[in-house]
Design a protein around this nucleic acid. Structure first.
Lengths: 108, 108
DNA sequence: TATCTAGGCATAGATAATCTAGGTCTTGGT
DNA sequence: ACCAAGACCTAGATTATCTATGCCTAGATA
């Protein structure tokens, strides 16, 4: 995953995480992740929108149309109760796996 | 990536890392990763062998047949100079991305 | 001796998630 | 009248993983 690419399998977790603050529209989700990560992470639109569709199907987010700060028609996503649970689960999986990886990288 | 699954994109790095000590055969690579990670990581053979093939093609490892400690015909893999460079590159990519992820998870 | 288990290599096919590269529409500024 | 940026979306290619399977051998055990 060179340059600004994502770690496959972690995008959903990041999206759910930034939605914990409150609803955001897609474009804003990508920007938020980019800024909060100090520009280390770059979410491509071709990854983001399909991911949001998957999460809608799973019931982890709900969407509704609205108007953005810049007066554009946008789709706001907000976390559901299931989404919150899913986020916790993904975080603990992620923590466990990265612990394992760190162990290998350090004491291999 | 539930239970013992891998984080996609990190297997190659882990394999190269454990080969830094010296040559190992495939089965032993999987075991080493499993043990060193405190059983957190489980490398499936169906992931490992294709990964080794890819790394052979890229020239990151070289393979030769030999006899294992348990007297079986095995294929020993050892790191090449290119493999060492690749490992450093993958580690720094990985570190950068996980820093970004941690930033989002904590200060989202 | 026959059989079983574990060690060990390998591949095919399904699945999933990403990226690239396009496309569309709108708003606000020049 | 035009253009850049905001915003949504999808198709297709690529890549990496997992599941399931097959094959072979050494050593232990019945």
């Amino acid at each position: 995953m060179a340059k600004n690419e994502m770690l496959p399998g972690t995008l959903g977790m990041l999206v759910l995480r930034v939605l914990q603050h409150g609803p955001l529209h897609g474009y804003a989700i990508a920007q938020r992740i980019h800024h909060v990560s100090n520009d280390l992470l770059q979410v491509e639109e071709g990854s983001l929108y399909p991911a949001l569709q998957r999460m809608l199907l799973k019931g982890w987010v709900k969407a509704e149309w609205g108007i953005s700060e810049t007066n554009r028609k946008v789709r706001f996503y907000r976390l559901t109760a299931d989404g919150r649970k899913q986020l916790q689960s993904e975080i603990s999986d992620y923590d466990r796996v990265t612990q394992g990886i760190q162990a290998v990288l350090s004491k291999a």
